[in-house]
Design a protein around this nucleic acid. Sequence first.
DNA 1: GTGGGAATGAAAATCATTTTCATTTGTGAT
DNA 2: ATCACAAATGAAAATGATTTTCATTCCCAC
Lengths: 121, 121
Amino acid sequence: MSRSNPRVLSTLERAGGFASAQEIYRLMQREGESIGLTTVYRSLQSLVNDKIVDVLRRDDGEAIYRLCGDAHHHHLVCKACGDTVEIEGGAIEKWAKVMAEEHGFRDVGHTAEIFGICSKC
Amino acid sequence: MSRSNPRVLSTLERAGGFASAQEIYRLMQREGESIGLTTVYRSLQSLVNDKIVDVLRRDDGEAIYRLCGDAHHHHLVCKACGDTVEIEGGAIEKWAKVMAEEHGFRDVGHTAEIFGICSKC
DNA sequence: GTGGGAATGAAAATCATTTTCATTTGTGAT
DNA sequence: ATCACAAATGAAAATGATTTTCATTCCCAC
Ligand SMILES: [Zn+2]
Ligand SMILES: [Zn+2]
Ligand SMILES: [Zn+2]
Ligand SMILES: [Zn+2]
């Protein structure tokens, strides 16, 4: 395993904490930073392993990465500008637990995201 | 747009209502059905458009399709055998609405899935 | 039977991601 | 400073899913 190149994380931050590997690579190029695409991918993987960033998928399947606090939480994402609010999901946690028990599931986890248009857009 | 080839849907059913395009294609081949991969993809797209199947993503980004009732609902999925239970999400619906309002979002939608190990596994 | 649009599928093109592998860089000991 | 060796880097090739192209086949209304 390799350690994350700090410039990748810093670029992800500058991107609003929300970008794909290809986007980060193009962004760094445009800003004159010399880096290889491979290193961008490797750094992102490492950041995901260390749970410093979160990975999810665009509709087209491309992986997007975002900076993320470490406590369990959910997201409210603007479909227009990408702005993301971390929200706490008390109701969901309970719902997931109840539903799982009701159907005899164990070792359960869950995902939940809300998306819409933010007030600025 | 093209109409879905009925054999694709029937194969998806036989697969337990849970498979990727490639898997459906390989399954049909193994069973001696003559079909092109392109047609499998086109049929699945069309089924998704018609909201007859649901699409989501494996961790590796491959799209998987599954048969799905048409009313809004959520899923409880077994990580081991893939068994899926459709569940209703009253608590989620309310949570999503409240959170969105609280942060000034409009036109909101949401996703929520629970995954774990079912009682049979 | 004929004409034209829809359906089909083989092959090529796309595109993100991973793998390979040779080169460079950093570090620590001598 | 020199050497040795491990980690980091990146160019290029490989992979694999999905989409596009395009020529052919099917089907149906007339
Ligand atoms: Zn916005
Ligand atoms: Zn939660
Ligand atoms: Zn199971
Ligand atoms: Zn819902």
